[in-house]
Design a protein around this nucleic acid. Structure first.
Lengths: 196, 196
DNA sequence: GTCTATAGAGGGATAGAC
DNA sequence: GTCTATCCCTCTATAGAC
């Protein structure tokens, strides 16, 4: 027998894994209970319903995204700017390749969000945070003179489009040279000034 | 009472609509039957199982994508190249905004594909067709002198990443200026030569 | 906190009449 | 071709013992 926090954590952990692997609907509470090593009704001691479990998981995942993908601008100089942009992209790519489950379950939530507003609100916040983050970095790039200020929002948005979709393509198992694609995207937004 | 082809078509049509709106698992055959105006067992006269119906729909959708998104290169000249690239992107964006259901159900299939190989094979073919199409256009651009030949594959792939993900963001209801983003992407791959 | 047992609903699928 | 009736299964959720 385990204590409260331990079991709770195991349920969330197993749910994450199984929801990612099978989807919400094809994962029953019995399956999760079996994975944890408890009986199905025991889950109801911790979560009012299956939907609540899905909700809690969503909140956890949202928190993780916000924490992980907040970009800082303070240390950016003309000499390290390009390298920084490249690095954050490379890190995201490596992260996606390492843990496909994260992207899988996140796509589940995106589809869920297109059908239930309560998920959509949170999702949109995350997306906008994404855009704001990159916008912040790019505007800093303009300030320190390594990025052409013209159409700066479009450039920033384009970068988001590219890095975000790389995760989706990784999900489909297509093995492209994603780092080179990201490099191309970064180079293309810097090209105006540095003329390379 | 209707004839065979008519009912078949209505089932496929209703399934398309309801699968897009509710997802595969949350759409029962009873719901589809009700939408068509027949009884549930009548569906089994046309389809062996729910899975078969999902399969047939997938094939239809794949065919439609292949037909719709095959790009031609023959009429491309130095003067109309940029306009052509812009236009195909704009058309895709407008199409996505017009019919969100298409993207919704396609994302359902993508998730399904990550769990069942038979869908993944077809999906990968489509994706590769996508890349080849844009590659063809871009290589033609190099030939007629409007695109810098360096890293031509990366540029081509980047364009695919951008246009493809715009559809996903439209799905989430985020109202960005997608046409401007696409314009930025196109301009950035042409920038090397035309220096604008 | 976790269990066994079970209610209650709804799903996919089939039998057989018309 | 389409129907009614029905089977069987699995799911979510609850009751109540320990």
């Amino acid at each position: 027998m385990r204590n409260r926090e331990e079991t709770y954590g195991l349920i969330v952990e197993s749910a994450y894994k199984m929801f990612a692997e099978n989807g919400f609907d094809k994962t029953s509470l019995s399956m999760i209970a079996k994975e944890v090593g408890i009986s199905k009704p025991a889950i109801y001691y911790y979560f009012d319903s299956k939907e609540k479990l899905i909700d809690v998981l969503f909140e956890e995942i949202c928190k993780e995204i916000v924490n992980q993908y907040t970009l800082t601008v303070d240390d950016l100089t003309a000499t390290n700017f390009e390298h920084y942009l490249l690095t954050i992209g490379f890190e995201m790519i490596e992260e996606q390749e390492r843990d496909v489950n994260f992207n899988k379950i996140f796509n589940e939530y995106i589809l869920l969000a297109t059908r239930k507003d309560k998920y959509m609100n949170e999702l949109n916040k995350i997306q906008m945070g994404y855009f704001e983050n990159f916008s912040k970095v790019m505007n800093h790039g303009v300030k320190i003179g390594v990025v052409d200020g013209e159409r700066i929002e479009s450039k920033s948005n384009m970068l988001v489009m590219v890095i975000d979709n790389i995760g989706n393509f990784i999900l489909t198992g297509l093995e492209l040279d994603y780092k080179t694609i990201w490099e191309e995207a970064v180079k293309s937004v810097l090209r105006g000034v540095r003329n390379d």
